[in-house]
Amino acid sequence: MSRPLRWCVLGVGVAGVGLVMVLAFLRMPAFGSSYHPYRDAAVPAAVAHGTANVVGSVTFDQRGIDTLGEEAIFFGSVLAVSVLLRPADDEEVRSEEGSLAPLQSTRLFGYLLLPLTLLVGLDIVAHGHVTPGGGFQGGIMLATALHLVYVAGRYRSLEQLRPMPLFDSGEAAGVAAFAALGFAGMAAAGSFLANFLPKGTFGQLFSAGTVPLFNVAVGLAVGSGGIVMLGKFFEQVFTVSQDEGRHGESTAS
């Protein structure tokens, strides 16, 4: 299809979809109105289970099976990235690196932020059921924290801090812990992913039953998975095709 023809088809499609969208938006409940039937059902359910963060309650208690699926998608994606980015037969990974050292101020910034980011990440995972946050958000922060070492230093120091097999199993353990908690609910309360633990005092650290445990499981899975996935992308910089020459003077193959 030639480009002018493609743009004509695109124009017709965009105009049509846009028109249908506006027609649908005109009949939706007004923006900012007080009509929220899902909210009216979800909030009492969360309060009954002693969860102050209602979003956390919806994610891990009321809608737990969806989150298990989401975990599976994340796990599958990390797996697929690892498979796609593995070195092919005619490629090899070299651990060379340039001699460019980062600025002193960048190094200082990175090393100061590393412990701070780790701490905030752990806090967001641990308090996910009482404050905004949770396993997904905290896990990504933990994965980011580790990569500050790369920003502040060298790739080799990141490699030393990052035992890949450990994080590979960490991700699997997180997903397995999520499913195991689900089966524990089935054994203790009769339904998969049931919130079977004591609910504690509303708004305290020990409350919300299984929600904080799910947060820890997801934090482990997302943190480890993020590190593994970013690691595979980093490795690409050092992957050289044998017919490309030492410094990747790329000739289209």
């Binding site: 979800a42 979003v55 919806v58 994610t59």
Partner: peptide
């Protein structure tokens, strides 16, 4: 509060 279900 605002709807927590759509936020999840």
């Amino acid at each position: 509060v605002v709807d927590p279900v759509v936020q999840a």
